[in-house]
């Protein structure tokens, strides 16, 4: 498969993540992490979805356009967002109580590694210049479904690995992994490839994925 430009790959991941939720028929609370996950809101078209942002809001709207910003209103990525009808502000205790208490139906997060057991590493790189965990551990252990949305490799090096070498954020918590090449679902103690990008071959995915996976039949085609 031809390598996509970074923005194009990120947009494809976000679009395919949004697709998971665009047909829910009941009220659905969705939390979105920083980076690619924050772009998912651009592709949400379903009024049943309520976006929760852990810095204190249920019912966050899209990113604010110039002139729409409010000095006291941001999402967890520190971007200005707008209100939606029926939105509610939460203090940090209620925001995380909602997460821990099982009221957040899904969270979409980025990751540096996901391994064959569904372990997720996304908070730090030893020896790097990082010092922060934010809400990652609370979200991964608390949200009902954890969706990892990320670029398939780190400059060609597999991020879907046999065993995480980076510090783990949460154990056996990954339910779905979406990349620009593939969608995997964690089922029966292992990953199942359920969707493939229209421009990818199974052999491309096999060569860039370290963990072993089963292949669904039929295999669905992802949005381009």
């Amino acid at each position: 498969m031809k390598e996509l430009a970074k923005e194009e790959a990120a947009e494809r991941v976000a679009k395919n993540a949004a697709r998971l939720f665009n047909d829910v028929e009941n009220p659905f609370v969705l939390n979105l992490g920083v980076g690619i996950p924050s772009q998912v809101s651009n592709f949400i078209t379903n009024d049943n979805i309520f976006i929760q942002t852990e810095n204190g809001m249920l019912g966050a709207g899209r990113l604010a356009k110039p002139g729409e910003e409010h000095p006291m209103l941001i999402n967890a990525s520190r971007r200005s967002v707008i209100e939606t009808k029926g939105c509610v502000y939460l203090d940090s205790c209620l925001a995380f109580g909602m997460i821990r208490g099982g009221r957040v139906d899904a969270t979409v997060l980025g990751a540096m590694q996901v391994d064959e057991k569904g372990n997720i590493a996304n908070w730090t790189v030893p020896g790097g210049n990082q010092l922060g965990v934010g809400g990652a551990m609370d979200l991964i252990s608390g949200a009902n479904k954890v969706v990892i949305a990320m670029i398939h490799t780190n400059k060609g090096r597999p991020k879907l690995v046999r065993q995480c070498s980076l510090p783990v954020t949460g154990f056996a918590e990954a339910d779905i992994v979406i990349t620009e090449m593939a969608v995997f679902e964690f089922k029966n103690n292992g990953f199942l490839l359920t969707k493939i990008a229209p421009d990818a071959q199974l052999s491309d995915i096999e060569s860039l994925t370290e963990f072993a996976f089963a292949v669904a039949n039929p295999l669905e085609i992802m949005l381009a």
Partner: peptide
Amino acid sequence: VPQGTLAESIRAAGAGIPAYYTAASAGT
């Protein structure tokens, strides 16, 4: 400290609860 744990530990202090259990960070 995980952000939700930070919030809850501060809440606990104000509510007279010396300690509590949470899943965040277990095993990490």
